[in-house]
Design a protein around this nucleic acid. Structure first.
Lengths: 186, 186
DNA sequence: CGCTTGCAAGTAAATGCTCACATACTGGTC
DNA sequence: GACCAGTATGTGAGCATTTACTTGCAAGCG
């Protein structure tokens, strides 16, 4: 098999485990069973590799949110769809999503806020629902953070090995109920 | 003033901003206005410095949880007390708590689980409340993760500058209501 | 051939850390 | 108080190692 996809997989694993700064090109190459030089045939630098991988996950997640939220009506339904979609996607490519989840803060300076990052999208949905009186009023930034936190912290704890090996989807029902409760709580 | 506390402050800031691996001893020394050698008068290595700072925050948070939860009866009251206490402590020493929050994953391998880390403590409280029928049954690990996520994600977004400069306590009421809703949701 | 992909050895720079030296504090003795 | 040894604290030049990245060469392939 060609080296590029093997490098991508290996890099995701190493970045997720050690962080971008803690990961070494040697380790990535070793895990991909490839020489270090091979990395630089496909990427200009370690950082470009990391940013490329992160942005792929970031865009995939943003697209997912837009698609799922656009397909149904009402915040309740949107919340349920989003939770389920996130769980499914994460289970399908856990390496990619745990990397995205755990290393988010490293890439904050990089993605320009065009309003298409996951957090802003959720904020927008909530703001709109408040306007339509579907939700009680409140700071949409905080409500969005709290609702997202229900998902991300659960996923993080799974990544840390605190929840066993069950798929994230196994908890989708509980998480959906919790998110909907957060949205309405005041 | 002596160098040690200045180094500690500088290290917290640099670790929080760049991560433990991304932080350099040169940068820490420069920010503390101290020579690099001064660091090694007080700590054996950069990692020991980082671990010391983290463990101090970790223990302080654990003690806080035990004290606050032990002082009142009933999950509802415990939840309210914990949220308020965390917000107050975080506002009092935001540098310390944002470092703890953002770099947690770096130190996971280090703290042995004697059941006294914050997450396990919350899990125990929830498990006990379920036994006493104060809460509907459900996986306590997941419920704890979700409840904690409400707080941590909000605090993280504040650290990322997404919530303005308001104190975290400004949102304590909203967060308390959300946490209590999560605990009861099913 | 021409082009892409991979390797092995190597390089320059950065990083964590050390060490010889200087200075400031501490407490006991006269 | 004056003296002084002993210790703790800070400096800054520098060392060994690691790290990201480069380069010359060869193999596969249309």
């Amino acid at each position: 098999m060609s080296a590029k996809p093997r490098i991508e997989r290996a890099a995701l694993e190493v970045f997720a485990a050690h962080g971008v700064d803690g990961a070494t090109t040697k380790l990535i190459a070793a895990r991909a069973e490839v020489s270090e030089g091979a990395i630089y045939r496909h990427w200009k630098s370690k950082d470009e590799l990391a940013i490329g991988l992160f942005m792929a996950a970031h865009k995939r997640l943003s697209d997912l949110i837009e698609a799922e939220a656009g397909a149904v009506h009402g915040v309740e339904a949107k919340a349920a769809a989003l939770v389920k979609a996130y769980c499914t996607a994460a289970d399908e490519d856990w390496t990619l999503f745990s990397f995205h989840l755990l290393q988010l803060h490293h890439f904050l300076p990089y993605y320009q806020d065009d309003g298409r990052d996951p957090v802003t999208l959720v904020e927008t949905i909530i703001k709109y629902a408040m306007l339509k009186m579907e939700l009680p009023p409140g700071d949409p930034r905080v409500v969005a953070a709290m609702a997202i936190g229900v998902i991300t912290q659960t996923a993080q704890n799974r990544a840390y090995g605190r929840l066993g090996e069950d798929a994230l989807s196994a908890h989708a029902g509980l998480m959906t109920a919790a998110v909907q409760a957060v949205l309405k709580a005041r």
